[in-house]
Design a protein around this nucleic acid. Sequence first.
DNA 1: CGCTTTCATGTAAACGTTTACATTCCCGTA
DNA 2: TACGGGAATGTAAACGTTTACATGAAAGCG
Lengths: 334, 334
Amino acid sequence: MKPTIKEVAKKAAVSIATVSRALSNSGLVAEATRDRIRQIAEEIHYTPNVSARSLSTNRTDTIVLVLPDLFGEFFSEVIRGADQRAQQHNYHLLVSSSHNNKGDIESALHSMRGRVDGIVIMSPNIDAHTLESSLPKSLPVVLLNCSVDGERCDSINIDDSQGAYQVVRHLISHGHRRIAIIKGTPNNLDAEERLLGYRKAVSEGGGDISEELEVDGNFTELSGQEAVTKILGLNPRPTAIFASNDSMAIGAISALRKNGIQVPTEMAIAGFDDIPVAEYLRPSLTTARIAISELGAMAVETLVNAVKERNAHTKKQLVLQANLVVRESCGCSD
Amino acid sequence: MKPTIKEVAKKAAVSIATVSRALSNSGLVAEATRDRIRQIAEEIHYTPNVSARSLSTNRTDTIVLVLPDLFGEFFSEVIRGADQRAQQHNYHLLVSSSHNNKGDIESALHSMRGRVDGIVIMSPNIDAHTLESSLPKSLPVVLLNCSVDGERCDSINIDDSQGAYQVVRHLISHGHRRIAIIKGTPNNLDAEERLLGYRKAVSEGGGDISEELEVDGNFTELSGQEAVTKILGLNPRPTAIFASNDSMAIGAISALRKNGIQVPTEMAIAGFDDIPVAEYLRPSLTTARIAISELGAMAVETLVNAVKERNAHTKKQLVLQANLVVRESCGCSD
DNA sequence: CGCTTTCATGTAAACGTTTACATTCCCGTA
DNA sequence: TACGGGAATGTAAACGTTTACATGAAAGCG
């Protein structure tokens, strides 16, 4: 059985209050007493129970990042940024997956009460109003990639529409007029806004506007591959593809190669995100770059501030801009 | 302030014990009473404090995965497998980073007492004996990619040596005799064993054995690129490269391209891991495949069993085999 | 020498929840 | 009608730690 503070107190012949003060440097303890207590604690491998401690102090020095998924380069980069910034603020970062469904988000939220000081939630697939009804009232929350009205918590979103618009405009500037889009997951905020940006750019640039050019995908490489099969079957065939994220662009490039179609000379392609591997592909991928890792870092920064203000601060909504990154897959050179 | 069980009890005109029984379905409660309590709990947005609950029940239904880093496709895949298996067992999975240093591992371990029921630790860079001295005695732990003597906890390792051996043997079967290796991080168990496998295959296959062919890397794409600069400067120039992981192989391929060297006709290359993007590269990457996601899943399975047995079971050491996956980058066709 | 202040430590309540045990009431059976 | 058993609920201790307040002793100052 794991030793408790009582065992330390007994062996050190002091009260548990003295042990607590000695180990946490809170309040006066005679130096000789403190040294004796610390030595005994180390000898019997005592570590405080953080549940008991947080019950008592009403603090955990921990925050949690709840993501739709925990894998893939995009989420990886979000976690990287969040982890680094949490470390700088001496907060312990935990990461948890909501598996992209509302029930799991609620379950994750319910399991966090008393365990963390604040929560970052990325949840582009969940309706923000139904999400808000699940949010604990006093626990600071920062929402990522959700559409909320701003009274209840801070949020950071990506200007998806503008990023998609830039990328598609660039394809148009290459002379493309028949551009397909591989869409993201249905009911996903990012996907919806990227579609809007695509439509706006195509409309303004005199490109073909057609429902058949808007091909289903779900942000995975496999769905990018499958979309290409459909795109190649369209008549007349598109000359460029905008994939709503880089993973689908990667899958699309692979499928084009398998169909003997040369990128970018026979089909131009562009993505969205700029995940790290995008620059290593051949051809390297033109894309809308989001500072993904900075998204995670800003989320943590915002949350840590909210925790310090006991969630009483004026909530704010930030928007991250996307920047066009021109590489080879649109026809430009690296 | 967040409502507690006391507020629910007061509004429902029952004791806190009745509320606890009603909400957790433990013990008899009249149906009308239970319905009234649940309605009130929902109205005032009551969620139990999990710290208090775990203090009382001595259980958390949570496990944690402590990784050297939380980003990159490899760790991503480990997390994917772990998360799926944890969900199947109705355990909540948390993920935390040790930032690949002993101090942070100890800090992570100390912050988990009373918060989780068990811990998976992947720590290839830390000497296992010093790690073991930090392990809590009664908390079940599963170690990944560490070298331990097996009395204290379960472990799952990769047969790195054998995997590297297979890959390098394959390069030798293509006629290569001057094969460079891009090594992993110093003092890393995986890196060390892959180097041993490389040496054994080269030695048995009559290849060149030379310290200059063993080039430093640290598992990142950038270090793969930098290693290529050194390798191209060797005289006579190697005809093949074995990168100790796929990320460095990706970086190496990119650098070879930039130097105008065609893979595989002018330089063959192979990696280790088989991260998901490896199949989308051009040329696609020959590699030693580890069922990375299965590593995570097995770790969780082993830990959940250890928790159930209250850590009193006979500890076991499992070894995951690597399988050669032949693609284009060695000169074979897909 | 006496009084005041400060140091060092102990006591006990509190944090929020669970649950063992006790109590009361109701129902069924002889 | 009486007794026994079971349902329903309340009481209070426990989980492990923190910390406000109390107490005693020692040191310093007038």
